[in-house]
């Protein structure tokens, strides 16, 4: 028989709710950092394409600069994974 707490919810129900909240938090962590990365990358990307159009030699360098904000989303992903497992 499930143990019920003061709110009338069973432990299983609370656990399931917590799991859901954790999944939601993980989604927010990945989603918001993804948006932040995109925001940072669109400016750098525009400038990178502009610079490459004028001088093809800088392609390697600007590609590296464009993906640096990707680290933000990686942080988000790490936090999400830590929360989930």
């Amino acid at each position: 028989m499930a143990v019920e707490n003061l709110t009338g919810l069973s432990v299983e129900m609370i656990e399931a709710s917590q799991m859901g909240m954790t999944a939601l938090a993980a989604a927010i962590a990945v989603g918001s950092t993804g948006i932040a990365s995109a925001f940072a990358e669109y400016g750098i990307g525009s400038a990178a394409v502009g610079a490459t159009a004028e001088n093809k030699d800088v392609f390697g360098l600007v590609l590296l600069l464009t993906v640096i904000p990707e680290t933000i989303v990686i942080f988000g992903l790490v936090v999400a994974l830590l929360m989930l497992f």
């Binding site: 669109y42 400016g43 990307g45 525009s46 400038a47 394409v49 502009g50 610079a51 159009a53 004028e54």
Partner: peptide
């Protein structure tokens, strides 16, 4: 759409300026 075309163009011209 948004400031990207401005960033693109201004960067291109900044590179051209350096070539003067």
């Amino acid at each position: 759409f948004g400031p990207s075309p401005y960033i693109y163009v201004c960067t291109r011209l900044r590179v051209r300026k350096k070539k003067l």
